[in-house]
Design a protein around this nucleic acid. Structure first.
Lengths: 135, 135, 135, 135
DNA sequence: GTGGTCTAGACCACA
DNA sequence: GTGGTCTAGACCACA
């Protein structure tokens, strides 16, 4: 269900968080879906349970997952609190700022960026049905 | 000349490396240009000199910069010769890909990103414009 | 009759115990009153029967409930005799203390809390009113 | 600086989080103040560094602390994002709801709760100057 | 010097 | 069966 690569630069728990978030965002893990247990995932990927647990816990704090005492964690009823659009936008501020800086330093135009965005937008069009070849 | 953000997720030395590489790639730092001294940069950005030093060192290993005994480091004689636009564009691929993914997870549209870009484009226009001249 | 929230931070068995204790203390569950069976409650709240059972058992140990072979558990003959108002009040001390602390940390005023209380007071009025009668 | 009690029911990392939050909220740890290092605190309280680290990390996620690569963590410039009052209020919803339920089951009135709040409000009046005798 | 990640293994609360 | 907490100790990235 998940692909965890201990070699990768990004921490395992973060890899897991990202994948869960995406699967939830794209509706592949609809609200209420139970997730594999901590131990199960840990065994399957030969990873320490605490690592999985950490990811789950952080996702709970984010409101993506819900803890059910004694039962496996499930996808939250309303994954994101659906913050107002403006607020969600602000989450991209830092990333966009960096991107703009990079573009300018590379002497590229706004049009160059927009073109790149168009390109990648189609590319990983999760919600349009296709979605992830391999993850 | 450079914009370093200690809060950012990416290490400072890496931020610096990225920016030098980009300014060189776009020809804004032509071969032979002297770079600010380690101490100067460290002071200006309230950053540990070892951090700057590390970045410079790695860029030297990459062949982007050249060390000149007793004199400031300079841009290498024949680094990349102002890479073609398409190639420079590719440097943003990873960043744009991540941004697009994030936007989708936040249920934002292409338009939202473009709006943000417009916003930030103006934003650091003043500064980056002036700075470039001083380079 | 009871309101159990599996999401809440406090364990389910404890929620049940608290509520039973309070209803007994206030005389709403007078001595001799039969309690719903473990299975009944478990079904009604989609909760593990062992959880209800545990609460009942602990309440029996506390002397609040009495087990009757073959018949439903009942409120003990002489539990606390409708504790005086001041004593019942004290039961809320801990909760109020935490609430006040939280409010202050959120930079809210007493008025904010009172407003919230007003709101929730009406809110579960309907339900708790009806329920009590059915008790 | 902090009081950690391994015996207490509440996890150590949570005790630390609560205390930091309060000291920040009450202005005793003004923005920019560096916190004791993870190792330092761990040694001082004979606690595992990961336990401290966990608390710090979660406080960073909350926006209370800021990580400074290679340097100790500091109190965030603007501890809470100062969410709109209404939103901060909502954070107390669950607690107030429980409190109201408890009060009704104890056959207490709104006035009883308000009296209790008044009482506790004076009690731990952090911001009014006095505040915590020992911590 | 800082904090971050991970393991292996223990023990606990809850259902 | 679930997840949560904690330890002891290793190793890493960053400054």
């Amino acid at each position: 269900m998940f692909i965890l690569n201990p070699q990768s630069g990004t921490p395992i728990y973060r890899q897991l968080m990202d994948q869960v978030r995406r699967l939830v965002a794209s509706g592949q893990l609809p609200p209420g879906t139970p997730l594999p247990s901590v131990r199960e995932l840990a065994l399957e990927h030969a990873v320490n349970p605490m690592t999985i647990s950490k990811a789950y816990h952080l996702l709970e704090l984010e409101g993506v997952l819900v803890r059910n005492r004694g039962k496996p964690m499930t996808v939250a009823a309303r994954p994101r609190k659906t913050a107002p659009r403006e607020q969600r936008r602000r989450e991209l501020d830092a990333a966009v700022k960096e991107l703009v800086l990079a573009a300018k330093q590379l002497e590229l135009d706004k049009e160059d960026i927009v073109a790149l965005i168009d390109e990648h937008w189609e590319d990983n069009d999760a919600r349009s049905g296709r979605h992830r070849r391999r993850t």
